[in-house]
Simulated scan of single mutants.
Amino acid sequence: MFISPEAVAQIAIGLIHGHVILYGPPGTGKTSLVRVLAKLFRTNIPQIWTANPEWTTFDVIGGLSPAIIGGKEVIMGKLGEVTGDMVRCIENIKNYDEK
């Protein structure tokens, strides 16, 4: 798969200035592009998620979920995939700034 250096540069600039959303039909190279960008920014990708129409708001953003802690049932907040990735990104930036 060929990814043009111009496309990588444009997306990298977009990431530096804000956010980028990659969209398109399956097999167009979105995941390959993300892997190239991760190397460019010297970061790793712990897991790649592919959204689908069956995802709910809970899957994307998160919400409250029952859990058992110390034998007691409690309600806890759970991050969705997007919010969880945002939190990890912020933690990576903080850790990088502290070095």
Rank of each mutant, 00 (worst) to 15 (best):
G70V: 03
P26M: 03
T31Q: 13
E73I: 01
I3W: 00
N95M: 10
W55S: 07
V8M: 09
L15D: 00
V36A: 11
R42M: 11
V8C: 04
T28L: 10
Q47V: 12
W55H: 13
I48A: 12
F2R: 12
D59F: 01
V20E: 04
G14I: 02
I48R: 05
K30M: 05
L40N: 06
W49R: 10
C89M: 13
L22F: 05
R35H: 14
N92A: 15
H19Q: 13
L33F: 05
L37G: 05
Y96I: 11
L40C: 02
I93S: 06
V87N: 01
V20L: 04
I75A: 01
I21Y: 07
I13V: 11
M86P: 00
G71D: 10
A51R: 00
A51T: 11
I21W: 01
K72I: 05
R42Q: 15
V87C: 09
F58V: 03
M76D: 09
A51V: 12
D59I: 01
G18A: 04
L40K: 06
G24K: 00
T31C: 10
I16L: 12
K72R: 15
P46N: 04
I3D: 02
T56Q: 07
T43N: 04
G70E: 15
I61T: 11
S65Y: 03
A12C: 06
S65Q: 13
K99G: 15
P46D: 13
P53G: 13
F2T: 14
D59R: 00
G84H: 08
S4P: 12
G62S: 08
N95Y: 04
G27P: 12
T57A: 13
N52S: 14
T28M: 11
K30I: 06
I93H: 09
L37D: 05
K99P: 02
L64G: 00
I3K: 00
A12Q: 02
D97Y: 05
S65A: 11
I16E: 13
